[in-house]
């Protein structure tokens, strides 16, 4: 199978809808098919990364658990849009999993060089 580079942009907060989980599942499915997968948190999507979440209190699954599996599926590095962090007064120390923070130009280049961008 021809390898394509896919960038998944996750832009929704974790529990208000099932979209956050949907993007993770789609990215894992792409990784299973040995595609080159980038995973970028943007806008409210960065709220998925906040530490000390316990979604059992609202009968949901804590999103961080699913995010930790990205690495096991070969998605080595989670990426975060720096502007989205700043807009929400978050910094690297507030985040639950190790991520690489991208500046505006790096985010733009990532989207530009990807074969496919899935934006949810």
């Amino acid at each position: 199978m021809q390898q394509k580079s896919l960038t998944f942009i996750t832009r929704q907060a974790p529990y208000g809808s099932n979209k956050a989980k949907l993007v993770i599942d789609a990215a894992l499915a792409a990784a299973v098919f040995e595609q080159q997968v980038n995973f970028l948190f943007m806008d409210d999507g960065v709220f998925q990364l906040v530490q000390n979440q316990t979604a059992e209190s609202i009968s949901s699954k804590t999103i961080g658990r699913a995010l930790e599996t990205l690495e096991l599926y070969g998605i080595e590095q989670a990426l975060v849009d720096s502007v989205s962090l700043e807009e929400r007064a978050l910094s690297a120390e507030d985040l639950a999993i190790p991520v690489k923070i991208l500046n505006v130009e790096q985010v733009r280049q990532l989207a530009a060089r990807s074969d496919v961008v899935i934006n949810l």
């Binding site: 832009r11 985010v107 733009r108 989207a111 530009a112």
Partner: peptide, 8 residues
């Protein structure tokens, strides 16, 4: 605004 950050 988010879109324009990605526009090349």
């Amino acid at each position: 605004n988010s879109c324009l950050r990605l526009v090349c």
